[in-house]
């Protein structure tokens, strides 16, 4: 859209290099092997996923690494039928969701797929809180969150 008054267009574009550090490096290496790692806090014993170097609450080291289940329950979800978002790794339609993987103590943010997404009503009838889902992996692994393609409902 061109504005009817004088403006100056300016794109600010800068490069960044983010240090992954040991925890993300190891977590992504796990993804490459189709494993999801969490880590357990030494103090409160909670398991956090993705694995991290410290417990967010206790701020002590969470260095006991655990391969967590690739199944879990839906806590919350939202469906985009046609709306595009900047920075979204997938095109609509998609479902973004919070998933509590089995035996972990926080919710994992990812996508739900493998179902018909064209009708919001149908999706709502299918995806109830607590619905069981399981990770589906992409063939090619890049050491990236999207090595997991999405989570699909576990039938039966």
């Amino acid at each position: 859209m061109t504005k009817e008054y004088n403006t100056l267009k300016n794109v600010i574009e800068l490069p960044h290099k983010y240090a992954a550090g040991p925890a993300w490096t190891r977590f992504y290496d796990g993804l490459k092997q189709e494993k999801i790692y969490g880590s357990r806090c030494q103090k409160c014993k909670k398991v956090f996923v993705p694995a991290r170097s410290y417990c967010p609450a206790c701020q002590v080291s969470a260095d006991e690494w655990i391969e967590v289940s690739q199944e879990g329950k839906v806590i919350s979800w939202a469906l985009s039928i046609s709306h595009e978002f900047f920075g979204m790794p997938v095109s609509p339609p998609f479902i973004t969701a919070l998933i509590r993987l089995d035996d972990t103590d926080c919710d994992f943010l990812h996508f739900i797929g493998g179902i018909d997404l064209s009708d919001a009503k149908k999706v709502k009838d299918l995806i109830k809180p607590g619905l069981k889902v399981r990770a589906v992996w992409n063939e090619e692994k890049k050491g990236h969150m999207m090595d997991i393609r999405h989570f699909v409902p576990v039938s039966g």
Binding site: Y18, A19, A20, G21, P22, W24, S53, Y54, Q59
Partner: peptide, 16 residues
Amino acid sequence: RRFDVTYPELVKEAVD
């Protein structure tokens, strides 16, 4: 050059 830690981990070092 602290490429051995993420940004929050670096902050944690000072806070701890």
